[in-house]
């Protein structure tokens, strides 16, 4: 098996953009709390922490996944904070967070996986995050009097939509060659 790696041209420049994205995520978190959108705030913090985990753990500020993913996630978080009625934003962030986790596992741990498995696993991770998100929505409704879960059917459609979005974004990630094998090909 030729294992996937995440390849970077210029680590410094990449990291700068990455930190900027993380900063934006934290900004979104602050705004969300201010606007009493506590669950979204938690979401933004979790994403920011996940993105900052490699540099913090390795004490190397340059140690980051390629910037495009972090910027996309920050943008989606911002969009979801500013236009909370657009549910699509949460599905996109969920999927991007999943891709981020897989990217970090592939780049910074001894785990090895093929490109195909990395993408498939990212989709599964998105479903896993959605499960956590659904539970979060439930308790947010309970404790903070939000109205995330209106009906069972709506929740079930959420599951369907997340799956679809995850498959679409997964295909895009694969097509973009975000995960590559060292030969340069995206198998």
């Amino acid at each position: 098996m030729v294992s996937v790696e995440v390849l970077l041209e210029d680590e410094g420049a990449n990291a700068l953009v990455g930190w900027f994205a993380i900063g934006t995520m934290l900004l979104v978190a602050g705004l969300s709390v201010r606007w009493t959108a506590y669950l979204w705030g938690c979401f933004a913090v979790v994403t920011a922490v996940t993105a900052a985990l490699p540099p913090i753990a390795t004490r190397d500020w340059k140690c980051m996944v390629p910037w495009s993913l972090l910027v996309a996630a920050a943008a989606a978080l911002l969009a979801g904070a500013v236009w909370p009625v657009v549910e699509m934003a949460s599905f996109v962030v969920i999927t991007l967070l999943a891709v981020l986790v897989v990217a970090e596992v592939v780049a910074f741990t001894p785990v090895e996986m093929s490109v195909r498995f990395a993408v498939a696993f990212a989709v599964l991770t998105a479903l896993a995050v959605e499960a956590v998100w659904a539970v979060g929505q439930y308790y947010s409704d309970l404790w903070w009097e939000t109205t995330f879960l209106q009906s069972q059917t709506e929740l079930q459609w959420d599951f369907v939509l997340v799956t679809v979005v995850a498959l679409v974004i997964g295909s895009i990630v694969r097509w973009l060659g975000y995960f590559e094998t060292p030969g340069g090909s995206s198998a």
Binding site: M1, S3, V105, T109, P110, V111, E112, M113, S114, R116, F117, F121, L124, T125, A128
Partner: peptide, 17 residues
Amino acid sequence: DEIDVPKAFRGLFIVVF
């Protein structure tokens, strides 16, 4: 051949699965 997971990381994969 798709995957090689050291034991320490198996937990993550199982939880996600």
